[in-house]
Design a protein around this nucleic acid. Structure first.
Lengths: 208, 208
DNA sequence: AACATCCGACCGATCAATCGATCGGGTGAT
DNA sequence: ATCACCCGATCGATTGATCGGTCGGATGTT
């Protein structure tokens, strides 16, 4: 009888954790913050999950908050990288760009759902200074979507009476994937991304 | 110079809090749970906000968890009541029913945004037994939406390749209103509800 | 090859502070 | 006098964080 050492799904993007104990601390904090919340998780919980004593955490992180801050930042970085990459790989048509953005947005939440949960839900428990870098990335990502919608409106391809409502609708319905998709292994990543992209296009396209 | 005793917006639905100290405890817990989270809020925080000592809370509630449990239940009850009432006041056309459901869904999150935040985000910190009543109501509400979508598909008015994705998309983009709308006082409740209802219809209606 | 030195990683013990909850007693209105 | 309501004091447990000390493996000198 052997124990399965291989990880079912990678919790963190490749190369984001570091090596050894530091990576195990981040992964432990990630799972615990996602399930119990930041204030519901003690540093002893994180330490024991990572196979350490609580005192040893402070050789890798300066505080409990810095663990959360790094996770939140890593999550936002991976998300923003996926969006910009998707925009670069597609053409200049606003409809095509919207599909690319939504598919990347949904894909990021499907690939790293636990990280997305922490990045979205536990960000509020950081001090403003610690949250600032992630919030800046979030604003940039939203700006990408806003620009694409604006270009579609200018070209006449989109019909959007309330642009800000469209932005929140698209971004939040994509974020729901991190909570919902893990419960539905029967729906493939491709179907998921394509379906949400279809919905986004339906919401903005001008009816003929 | 006088202090404004009138409350800008009612935090809780009428008659849901009770009277006197009990109502103030619920309102204090509501605001604190929404901003700091359940585990980030102490009994003493709630007590001082409500103008009491921590020991006095236990004359009205048996535990800290029971305060959250009541808030979560009240929120889900108000939400479910709004949905069923909206369905009763409209006709039998699936499109009309979908509009009614979405407008009621969004309206509930716009009328009591703080309560919605607690009901949606802090539910996970309740024990399964304490969360069960609210979860049952949530399932019933989702069932209403699912039934309407199913009727629209059966009549041919809707074209929905992935019904479960539509359900999560509609419900979660409505829930985002509780976080987003309070920051936009320039958008009226009517515009908000109508805009989201438009989006929902656009997502499901069969293109001609 | 043998020895001394150093250093990063980790641990057990412990700190002051705060946690949720309980108790007996006080207060005021009826 | 009764009764609901509230308070100060306090309980044991747990919190985030710090301390000195231990260990094993590199490094460098001879």
């Amino acid at each position: 009888m052997t124990t399965d050492v291989t990880q079912a799904v990678a919790l963190l993007p490749e190369g984001a954790a570091g090596s050894g104990s530091r990576a195990r601390i981040l992964e432990a904090g990630l799972e615990l913050f996602a399930t119990r919340g930041y204030h519901g998780t003690s540093i002893r919980d994180i330490a024991s999950t990572a196979g350490l004593q609580s005192a040893s955490l402070y050789g890798h992180f300066s505080s409990k908050e810095s663990i959360l801050a790094e996770l939140v930042l890593v999550g936002h970085e991976a998300h923003h990288r996926a969006l910009t990459l998707a925009l670069m790989e597609c053409g200049s048509d606003p409809v095509e760009q919207l599909r690319a953005l939504v598919e990347a947005h949904v894909g990021a939440h499907a690939d790293f759902p636990v990280l997305a949960i922490v990045a979205n839900h536990e960000l509020m428990h950081l001090t403003p200074e610690a949250a600032a870098p992630a919030e800046a990335l979030r604003d940039q990502s939203l700006n990408l979507l806003m620009t694409v919608v604006g270009r579609g409106m200018a070209s006449g391809a989109f019909d959007v009476p309330e642009p800000d409502i469209i932005l929140t609708a698209i971004s939040t319905m994509g974020s729901s994937v991190s909570l919902w998709h893990p419960t539905r292994p029967d729906i493939s990543r491709e179907t998921l991304c394509r379906s949400f992209a279809d919905l986004a296009v339906r919401m903005v396209e001008r009816k003929t």
